[in-house]
């Protein structure tokens, strides 16, 4: 496929999306329901990953650091 411009390419991509998901045959209001559900789900996934992944990464790093990190000196404190 050759495209004149980016816009045409985008419209072709949207057409492929319509065909593969099967919503090409749906009525416009059904299409908008499907799109809004799908895109809100994607948006939520993106948002949650933006919010929570850094926290989880930090926690994981700390956890592994504790396991594999060097022996902390504090465990060798004197008992007197």
């Amino acid at each position: 496929m050759y495209f004149k411009n980016f816009r045409e390419y985008l419209s072709w991509l949207y057409f492929q999306y319509l065909l593969i998901t099967g919503i090409y045959v749906l009525e416009p209001w059904e299409k908008s329901i499907f799109n809004s559900i799908l895109f809100s789900a994607i948006a939520m996934v993106v948002y949650t990953s933006y919010v929570f992944i850094p926290i989880h990464l930090r926690l994981a790093l700390e956890f592994f650091h504790e396991i594999f990190g060097g022996q902390p000196e504090s465990t060798m404190t004197l008992m007197n």
């Binding site: 593969i20 998901t21 099967g22 919503i23 045959v25 749906l26 059904e30 499907f34």
Partner: peptide, 16 residues
Amino acid sequence: VLTYMGYGILTIFGYF
């Protein structure tokens, strides 16, 4: 796989 997915989506809308 995509064909089954398409039928799945259309079936959901059919039930709706």
